[in-house]
Design a protein around this nucleic acid. Structure first.
Lengths: 226, 226
DNA sequence: GGAATACATTGACAAACGTCAAATTTTATT
DNA sequence: AATAAAATTTGACGTTTGTCAATGTATTCC
């Protein structure tokens, strides 16, 4: 697992230090790793399962900003800046997560500057992703954004069936789906209804069947409607 | 200038190395520092003026993602990841910008790991900013988002007048304003019209007069409309 | 200084979206 | 299994927003 994560840049003795300073925890669905406003107490590394990164606004609206998967490191911003966490992290299902104490993280960063550069590359990738979302929010319709989101989720949760169609088990609720594209959940319900009447995707609970992936791709090109 | 920038973490001899590897350039309004798709050729450091960071989508829509001010470093993501630039950088007015070649940047990062951590903190702040925008795009109306944007621009471009009002010289066009809040420029024109009939802000070209800043703050709380 | 070009405003209309409310289904709890 | 709670779907309605088109206003470039 470590080989496919940010910690792969560490040398042999550093791995020993890491091993001595980490603990492993099991979370069940809905459990919180950390919350907005708390001080950073270390870096969390997802070993299995999916972790949702959310932010709440002043009125209590929840926005799902990112899904974290095995190999991803979480919460290092708070450790490095000394600021409180800016997001909630919550297990979406059963998940195993390692925890490396702040003290150990700082020692490792001190020993091996490549770890810092690795975190920097990871943060830059997250920034790139967030900026792409901003562009989509500014230029795409909700329908196109939902189509795009389904395509992204297919990469990780999709399965090809024998007849050339694809199926997908959604890791999140309709409400979360809605917050990810910046729409109300009622709007998402209606877009789903239209996807079904248009034969583009069929939803049943969290299962989705997509006869032709290409039809989803077509949806993304914005307002070429006559 | 260097004292207030990311480079303030450097020691004496490193500053000497920096000085030997940098060049200073003057840009005039609209000139490009670098463009999407180009390889990173170094880090750009804004000395004076304002630089706009934009991204274009497949259809040519431009979204203004960020404004960079004196002390800000730009383009280091491309240097560190080896990937091409993901954004355009363009001077909004006359600007002085230093350029530090990739080779020098890498040498400095090698000598002083704190520089990398400094870039990491800066990137984390940008990510935080982008995620805040995502939350706003998901929860606020265009009117509220424009009010919020005006408040942010006031921090840097605002002046208090004798009668307790504030004035503001916008650094960007209406189109850019629109792309920053994810709306069409026609919509921005109409919101501006409504701000004027409601006595909240008066626009004349790029000059804005805001009689009571608090009135703008009130606009941000979403749909508490009867 | 005047033509050409880009930028901004306004109107009319239709489509998309949010809000409120009710009904239905799913999930969790006892 | 029964109940309670949460999530989802659907309908009706009004508002906001985008689109298209026309007009007016700045800027830029010869």
């Amino acid at each position: 697992m470590r080989k496919r994560s940010d910690w792969s840049v560490l040398g042999q003795d550093e791995v020993t230090l890491l091993a001595s300073g980490q603990s492993s925890y099991s979370y069940s669905a809905g459990e919180s790793l950390y919350s907005m406003g708390e001080a950073g107490d270390g870096v969390y590394c997802v070993c299995s399962g999916t972790v949702a990164i959310r932010r709440l606004d002043a009125e209590g609206n929840s926005v799902l900003l990112q899904l974290a998967y095995p190999g991803d490191s979480l919460g290092y911003e708070a450790v490095l800046t000394g600021e409180p966490h800016r997001c909630n992290a919550e297990a979406l299902g059963p998940a195993n997560v390692c925890h490396i104490r702040s003290q150990t993280v700082r020692a490792l960063l001190d020993k091996n500057p490549n770890l810092g550069l690795q975190f920097l590359r990871r943060t830059a990738a997250s920034l790139d992703d967030a900026q792409d979302k901003l562009v989509h929010h500014a230029t795409l319709s909700n329908r196109a954004k939902l189509a795009h989101l389904l395509l992204i989720l297919m990469d990780r949760y999709g399965r090809l069936t024998a007849d050339g169609a694809s199926t997908l088990h959604l890791p999140v609720s309709r409400r979360d789906l809605a917050s990810m594209i910046g729409a109300r959940h009622e709007t998402v319900s209606r877009i789903i209804g239209r996807f079904e009447t248009d034969g583009i995707a069929y939803f049943s609970g969290r299962s989705v069947r997509i006869p032709q992936v290409n039809a989803l791709v077509e949806e993304i090109r914005p307002q070429l409607v006559g």
